[in-house]
């Protein structure tokens, strides 16, 4: 091997390696984006509505799913992919509600990517025994930053912000708001206990993303649950 450049030639060869600039002009996340396109096509072919739930840890993603399953289990077929860094606690909670769930543990990574969804969906299919799904929920790893970078091939991205987190979250995490189609403000029963400005959070979120749909919910009192379920059904039959 040549000592100068590491090429396969003998040492004595003339160094005529040419430097060339290759125009690329493509996304840094191309590999994930390509896999997302393939996931989406797969969901479309099967008539599945795929929904990606993102939020900070503890905003109530799993609780929202539990309540959604309770309301819709007898009407539509639901499957869940649960993303977490460790444990299958959340998949267990979902299975306890009687719907198939696959836990995706990232082992440290703070977001799901499209390749994980591809693998996870195939292992979910094994639990379905040929039955088709109407809705696939993907519960992302609890994190308001990184999941917003990774398209999973979902049709709808939903971001949850719970009242205890504070009304300043949209302006602090603009990408999560800008890349989502729905904002769910959860734990609304706690508004009276926190210095939480509902008007401000809505105004800021809409300034970042004018087409954002905002639903205020409480799994405790049931506020907003009907609106949420109506949204889902409407989106499913669109």
């Amino acid at each position: 091997m040549c000592d100068t450049c590491g090429c396969d030639h003998e040492q004595s060869h003339t160094h005529s390696h040419e430097t060339r600039t290759v125009d690329v002009n493509q996304s840094l996340l191309k590999a994930n984006e390509d896999a997302a396109v393939s996931n989406k096509k797969h969901f479309d072919d099967k008539g599945i509505l795929a929904i990606n739930l993102i939020s900070s840890p503890g905003s109530g993603k799993t609780t929202l799913l539990e309540k959604t399953i309770e309301a819709l289990k007898d009407k539509i077929s639901i499957g869940v992919l649960e993303g977490d860094i460790e444990t299958d606690l959340d998949a267990e909670r979902i299975r306890a509600k009687g719907v198939p769930a696959v836990q995706l543990t990232t082992g440290g990574a703070c977001h799901l990517d499209s390749a994980q969804i591809h693998r996870g969906f195939h292992s979910l299919e094994h639990q379905l025994h040929g039955k088709n799904l109407d809705v696939l929920f993907i519960e992302n790893v609890g994190n308001l930053v990184c999941p917003s970078f990774f398209d999973l091939g979902e049709h709808v991205r939903i971001v949850l912000i719970s009242v205890p987190e504070g009304h300043d979250k949209p302006v602090k995490y603009p990408k999560a708001i800008r890349t989502s189609q729905v904002l769910i403000i959860s734990k609304s029963d706690l508004v009276q206990h926190f210095d939480f400005d509902l008007h401000k959070i809505k105004k800021d979120a809409l300034a970042l993303n004018p087409s954002l749909k905002i639903i205020v919910t409480s799994a405790k009192t049931g506020e907003g649950m009907e609106e949420w379920i109506d949204f889902l059904i409407h989106r499913l039959h669109r």
Binding site: V22, V24, N25, Q26, L29
Partner: peptide, 20 residues
């Protein structure tokens, strides 16, 4: 306040210099 974002969200590989 009725504005649209023209640039600022880019995340691209523009070009790569290679030795051949």
């Amino acid at each position: 306040g009725n504005l649209q974002l023209v640039s600022g969200e880019e995340q691209h590989i523009e070009s790569v210099e290679v030795e051949i």
